[in-house]
Structures are given as structure tokens and as C-alpha cells.
Amino acid sequence: MLARHPAGLASEKCDALRAGAVWDRAMHVVVSTPTPDELPFVVETLRTWQDESAPLQLHPGDLGWSWRDGTSAVAAAVRTWTRDGMLVAVGFLDGPDALRMTVAPGLWRDDDVARHVVEDVSDPGRGVLPEGAVAVEAPNATRVFEVLGEAGWRVGEPWTPLRRDLAEPVDAAGLRVEVVEAGRSAQFTAVHRAVWGNDRFTDERWRAMADGPAFARARCLLGRDSSGVAVAGVTVWSAGRGRPGLIEPMGVHPEHRGRGHGRAICLAAAAALREAGSSSALVCTPAANEPAVAAYRSAGFVPEPVRLDRSRPA
């Protein structure tokens, strides 16, 4: 499904030129950075692009999780490609030197879209990626992935996508699980800070994330052990009924690992997505992160073909 930009083609060209975007008169493909007001349209478009038959791709939850940095920061990190007024590809800068992206359904093998995207990510002057070592994550089945290779981009870090079908009920989690609500996020954010060893995810940043449009279909879950201690947390992102949902992120407090809590919170995440109508639960982790892969597999997630980045050396 292609989504038409709400501004329409004529105003889109003017807006793109004002934003310093690249306009190709022959093919009418433009790359640009959306305004904060345009982000709900991008999130909704990504939602409609999620399909059970497709491999893991950029998901509304990827943008939703980054909303903890605020709406303006998310807008600055998003890149959109349009052709004749239709949104054909979306990218998200997961850091200054890594772009995660996907292409509209029906255009995964479109050579024109692929070559424009690769030209834009390869030229620092286009405002997508800087000079030096950078990486692009695109579904391996897309023409974008192939054209990057033809342009000399190397195969980068391997990732393991995993999927759990949600047609059948999910086993009980084995933890006491509660949905995190506004005003009650302190223990959830504390678990997150302990898991990743940084103090950036504060209650204020949780509220910023919860205020984003993607969170309307999301839940944060906090897992407690039999003593009531908060031991694990996970955020799940639904893309709507009949579409795959995303787990991003999941973690177990380092003081409570090795007790099956990873499996338990993964089961809770799958159950929450099933309740939301998701067709499957998706997650992706570095292939080298064997403990995480093992935790997901123990909760019924099945590994899919390894996902590879494309990287350009410095």
C-alpha cells in the first residue's frame, strides 16, 4: 500500500526545496526530513506496511521507542522518500551513523526507488548519513540491499530476527506482570537503567515516549517475582489487528538473571500482543547475543534467516 503525502505533490516539491531536499525531475523521487507535525502520518504509514508475510522491517515501535528523546528529536532522525507524492520508503537514524529503513509493499524490488535511496545514503551532501563509516539496515529481500552491495557496501553485522506465532493462547508468564501507567513508571525505568547500565531513561523520558502517537498501540510491562521485587521489563508495540507486533526493548535486572525471568517476561510480551490482536510477535537481536536468543527461543520464538546490515568503511 502506497500512502499519499497529506500535503500533495505540488506543495511537497516546494516544501522539499525549502528543506534542502533532493529533487529528481525525471523520476520525481525526493528525500526529506518530516516536520514534527508530519510524524503521525509517517507512523501510521509504517503501521499499514507491516505484513505477516514479510520479513522483519522498520516498525512503528522503532520510532515509538525513540520518542523518549522527544518529538523534535524523532523528526530530525526520520527520512522519507516520496515519488509523485506517494511515500515509497522510510528511514530512521538509529544514531548518527546507522540508518534503519524499509520500502513500501509492492516496491521492495523496484530498481528506481532502490537506486535513489542508495544515491541518497551514499552522498553525505544529501543529508541522510555523514562521511566516514556508516551502516544501513534494510530488509535483505529488498532491491535496496542488493544495490548497496553493487555500490561497494560491505556485509555488516549479523542480526537474528525471531518470530512467535500468536494464533494460539500463550502460556502463563510465571511472573506477576503489571501494565505500567502514567505516574507509576519509576520501578519500570529503574529496571531499564539497571539492564543497560545508564541513567538516561528517567520517568520524564518515559512520559515523553508515552505521549508519542506510536504508544497509542503500545504497552510497557513490569514483571515482579514471588516476593514482589521488580525483576524485568518489556515494551510491546502493536501495529493493529492481524499485523505483526514488535518487542522493543526487553531486559532482566542483572541482579535477578539466571532464574527464568527472561523467558517469563517474553511470554508476557507475547500474551499482551496477542490480546492486542497481533498476528505474531517479532524481535531482533545481535546474532552474537546468545543469551537473548536463548531466552526468546525458550518462550516459543523461532529464529528466522539472519539479517545483515550493509556497511561503508571510513
Results as ranks from 00 to 15, higher is better:
12 E>N: 00
139 P>D: 14
39 L>E: 14
63 L>P: 10
224 R>E: 04
9 L>I: 04
31 V>P: 00
242 G>W: 02
7 A>E: 15
18 R>T: 07
313 P>I: 14
227 S>D: 15
49 W>L: 04
106 G>S: 05
24 D>P: 01
89 A>F: 12
7 A>C: 12
44 E>W: 05
256 H>M: 00
98 A>V: 06
231 V>E: 13
158 P>L: 13
12 E>L: 10
279 S>Y: 04
153 W>I: 10
28 H>P: 00
21 A>I: 02
275 E>Q: 12
187 Q>F: 06
242 G>Y: 03
224 R>P: 01
164 R>E: 12
9 L>P: 03
77 A>S: 15
167 A>P: 02
300 G>T: 09
125 G>A: 10
11 S>T: 08
160 T>V: 15
80 T>M: 13
141 A>W: 14
119 E>V: 07
104 A>S: 10
251 G>D: 06
288 A>V: 11
34 P>V: 11
8 G>A: 13
53 S>T: 15
209 M>E: 15
18 R>H: 01
155 V>E: 15
93 L>P: 06
35 T>G: 10
106 G>A: 02
59 H>W: 08
78 V>Q: 13
230 A>Q: 09
253 H>P: 04
305 P>I: 08
251 G>W: 04
227 S>W: 10
23 W>H: 10
102 T>F: 00
116 H>M: 05
82 T>G: 07
302 V>K: 11
58 L>H: 09
61 G>D: 09
158 P>A: 07
302 V>Y: 11
70 G>T: 08
86 M>D: 12
57 Q>C: 12
130 P>C: 10
31 V>T: 08
54 A>E: 15
286 P>E: 14
302 V>R: 15
12 E>D: 12
242 G>R: 08
146 E>C: 05
171 D>Q: 12
275 E>C: 02
50 Q>M: 11
278 S>M: 01
62 D>Q: 10
310 R>I: 09
242 G>F: 08
262 G>M: 01
187 Q>K: 14
264 A>C: 03
188 F>T: 00
95 G>Q: 06
107 L>Y: 03
234 V>Q: 05
80 T>W: 01
305 P>G: 07
222 L>K: 03
223 G>N: 04
22 V>C: 08
77 A>P: 07
18 R>E: 11
149 G>L: 10
165 D>G: 14
60 P>Q: 06
52 E>R: 13
85 G>P: 02
69 D>I: 05
69 D>R: 15
119 E>Y: 00
252 V>F: 03
74 V>P: 00
186 A>P: 08
114 A>K: 03
129 L>Q: 14
126 R>L: 11
66 S>L: 13
272 A>Y: 03
95 G>N: 03
70 G>H: 05
86 M>H: 05
65 W>F: 13
151 A>F: 03
284 C>D: 04
292 A>G: 14
283 V>D: 04
296 Y>N: 03
229 V>N: 06
174 G>K: 06
82 T>D: 11
211 D>I: 06
222 L>P: 02
250 M>S: 09
242 G>D: 04
9 L>M: 08
193 R>V: 05
17 L>F: 08
194 A>R: 15
57 Q>V: 06
10 A>E: 15
4 R>C: 07
98 A>K: 09
309 D>T: 11
193 R>M: 01
251 G>A: 06
105 P>E: 04
62 D>N: 13
240 G>H: 11
19 A>Y: 01
201 F>A: 09
136 V>Q: 12
100 R>W: 02
307 R>P: 00
150 E>I: 00
54 A>F: 10
